[in-house]
Amino acid sequence: MVDVAFGPEPGPKRGNGPGESYLAMVRRKRMYGGILLAVFVAMMAAGFQLADGRNAGGFWDGLHRLGDFPSEVLAEAWRNRANIPGLFWQFLPSLIETLNIAALSTLLGGLGAMMLALLATRGLARWPRLTPLFRRLMDALRAVPEIVVALVLIFILGGGPIPAVIAIALHTVGALGKLFSEVAENADLKPVEGLTSVGAGWGQRMVLGVLPQVAPNWVSYALLRFEINVRASAILGFVGSGGIGYDLKLAMQWGGGKYDQVVAIFLLLFLTIVAIDRLSDHVRARLVKGRV
């Protein structure tokens, strides 16, 4: 089934011949498709209208002001362009903190996801009866947005990177756990059976029988997640705790006068994200194509 299909397959043919009933089918399908499209367009239009109405500034009023802020920022940064290399150095520690938050949360989340995924995969689970429980647990972890956990933890643990790490790691467990378990489901069970026959325990079977099979795919997913987590940790910094997001917020709050800092942070963030994107693309392509 390639096309978007509505309703069941053609039933017994009515009409004068196959050609005519085929055309009738096509017409009906087009009509359904058209209705669906019209509903969709109406929903989009109404939605934009509504969103525009509830916005503080209207879309059409704001459109010509869209360039104001970037041009103001860029103009001031251009005047102070001599500062920018120095500012790169100044913000490098915060950038490293942001990257560390992402790396640590991916690492911890990945380790948690490995455990949960193996426990939630049919055929591999330590306690087969409990697989639905672990699955629901992963769903719940995935559903909680990082910001909710982070803001609550900031209240308890104070500022700094730890709340962000915990928040992103919890979310990562859920998100990666699902992907990991999908990979593990396709693993070949023969090595596991072989290991069982020589009396290996569950841990040994998993480490020696399953891990080598799934490692390339798992690492590839984890890299993709790392990329997402870098962005998430920058955003969490802006909303709450440490890292380069927080510096960005401070520089932005200052308003005019610190726009060279804003540009330096924008550039650092942009270059880092593009670099990580490229690197992980490259590594993932190599991992999945089989050469480790």
């Binding site: 509504l50 969103a51 509830r54 916005n55 503080a56 500034g57 879309f59 704001g62 002001r65 869209l66």
Partner: peptide
Amino acid sequence: ILSRAFGPGPM
């Protein structure tokens, strides 16, 4: 950037 131009809100 967008919130500078359009103000807060769903749009």
